[in-house]
Design a protein around this nucleic acid. Structure first.
Lengths: 361, 361
DNA sequence: TGTTTCGATCAAACCGGTTTAGTAAATCCG
DNA sequence: CGGATTTACTAAACCGGTTTGATCGAAACA
């Protein structure tokens, strides 16, 4: 009935007839062990089914052999975002190969800092990923104080002591706007993500700059929160004749001309927007073109199929993990380039209606 | 330039003028320490900003102070499923309060067993959650072999040595079917999840049993894979006049009568199904009623808003974590009841078209 | 051949906690 | 008042690895 205790390094040492120090050397590929002995040790380890205890290694080399992610998003928003699962899957691909684990922490927004402190103080992780960068993000300073190496997804807006995976949302938005412009749209609106998020802000910037670059007038921008509800509300605001009280959340001066296209900063809001259009009797794409961002699984299966920007979070995850592990190992790590996002055109974008088109000159 | 090393228990002991054993006792609330000394120790610890090293504790008490989840799903399916983020958020709520961490492992399906072994052999976790139960699931045996405590989400189909959170999808599906039956539908179809998943199987069973219970004829059941693409294909199969080659994936004999309602086993497939209906010129809900499952964020924002079954994965996560930690602490843990899922009715369900209705007798 | 160098190996210290065995002083008891 | 408990605490062992310093025999050198 006695539970077979896991073998330890001494068991292996005894079986191989050496000291435990030698076993350790043999296993870590250190010089100073004869080929003969090394093989005997490896064989003994295999026979006993021995795996070094991470706990013991962690203590003696003061490493956790784990990296962390602190997520301060609301679960509902997480669930709707295809980014995380793919990113994490990519991260794991790298971690598993290098014997590391991923410690996840999902916390209410107010406890974000506490989350990082917990990971650091308890020595649970050797480094972290920095996601959902914000404008003037305080976390870089926090992590430096905590002495925790990090890799950020996208480059922060201030000089950062940490390497970044150079994710850039701008080319994706730019492609969307140019695509619409080429179709003949002259009045394009944007449903932005929260301005305090760097990616929300950058997508919006890209929207505005590209409009200017192709010589179109600035379009209305409504800030929403990346949720379906937010996307629906924003769409209503854009499509409805600006009622008195409704103008509250409008950020830019409304163009006199009602937009013939809306660039959303994620698919979830775009899909919600499609429904609002139906409800208001606005045909998509005949009267209104719509683009999303993320190229969700669902994008190709809504009516009409959604033109969207395809990104590659799985790849980002792999690259980010490689960079972080190299950094932890003491290497000097440069920013990591990644391929630009691609626009996937589907039926939700088409030329603007002729009537509106006529007015455009 | 010397990095201030983190204080250890000896530093605290020295500061308080006691031995490190006493510090340990004081901190763990053991008897045998005078109130006086205890306070002096706690004060010293606070002053030095000392937190016990998880690594050291882990080694000496052979506990990881962490629990694990191994996910063998494809990232795309994960991304579309609102279950995981909410479940994990619930788990964290409990874990954080009890000083535990969550180790996540996302692996290709073929490496699932290896994933559990890695966690167990390296001693990374003290227990795991068992998600996505399958028919004749081998993992219970594996975990028992590995000596890893577990809590399963839903009760397995075979006697299990582990406690379960008694999630039951059947009442949700039953409510959906009854709702449709009350609206007057007589021919109802089901788009099922993969039959090798227990929840896929059980939702299907509930569908079939409820039909029988309310005296309706068995409806066609098409098995899909929970993805948008799968949902679209299944819908096409149900709505199209059964073409020659198309009958391949049809599981039940098709009812002679084309269905006036479809019960989907998740929202993602249901939303994809809505688009297929539009494409085939079938009006929802006028000609076809549709129900989903999960009550996704998006459900209320598609056209028409989707009647769906609301579940509470956040709660499940909290309860599951409590049960697992109690189990790890050596308690005897019973199965944990949770409230039944609720049907949320929206505009995607309505009475069947009169023409069809006439035929029903 | 005597000395040096080197490679292979071992014993012991160490990481930072927990836990057990032991001790001195204080308290109890008859 | 003297022996038996109890209380408060310390010293040391332990968890299972890694790493350092010392040892020893064989090969290299003078």
């Amino acid at each position: 009935m006695t539970r077979a205790d896991r073998p330890t390094i001494v068991d292996v040492a005894r079986a191989a007839g050496v000291s435990k120090g030698t076993v350790s050397f043999a296993l870590n590929g250190r010089p100073g062990v004869s080929e003969d002995t090394r093989e005997r040790i490896l064989a003994a380890a295999r026979d006993l089914g021995w795996t070094p205890s991470t706990k013991a290694r962690a203590l003696s080399v003061s490493r956790a052999f784990a990296v962390g992610i602190v997520l301060a998003r609301e679960p509902e928003l997480l669930g709707a975002d295809p980014f995380f699962p793919s990113f994490i899957a990519g991260v794991e691909r790298t971690l598993i190969d290098r014997g590391q684990a991923l410690v996840l922490q999902v916390v209410p927004e107010a406890e974000e800092e506490a989350g990082y402190r917990r990971l650091a103080d308890a020595g649970r992780v050797d480094g972290v990923f920095l996601l959902d960068l914000r404008v003037d993000d305080q976390r870089m300073a926090l992590l430096e104080e905590l002495g925790l190496p990090a890799v950020s997804i996208a480059r922060p807006d201030a000089p950062s002591p940490f390497p970044a995976v150079l994710v850039d949302d701008r080319p994706g938005i730019e492609a969307a706007v140019r695509h619409l412009a080429e179709l003949g749209h002259r009045h394009i609106a944007h449903v932005a993500g929260p301005a305090h998020f760097l990616h929300g802000q950058r997508r919006r910037q890209a929207f505005e700059e590209t409009l200017a670059a192709v010589g179109l007038p600035a379009g209305p921008v409504v800030e929403a929160d990346f949720s379906a509800a937010g996307g629906a509300a924003a769409t209503r605001e854009i499509l409805k004749p600006a009622g008195g009280a409704a103008a509250t959340r409008q950020i830019l001066k409304p163009a006199e001309q009602k937009p013939t296209a809306i660039v959303y900063s994620n698919d979830l809001m775009a899909i919600a927007g499609l429904s609002v259009a139906v409800e208001l009797g606005v045909a998509v794409p005949a009267q209104l073109s719509v683009t999303g961002f993320d190229n969700t699984d669902l994008a190709a299966y809504v009516t009409p199929p959604l033109t969207s920007v395809r990104t590659d979070p799985y790849l980002w995850g792999r690259k980010a993990a490689e960079a972080l592990l190299d950094l932890i190992d003491g290497g000097t790590v440069d920013d990591v380039p990644v391929p630009a996002a691609q626009l996937v055109t589907r039926a939700s974008t088409a030329p603007p209606p002729p009537t509106v088109r006529t007015e455009k000159r």
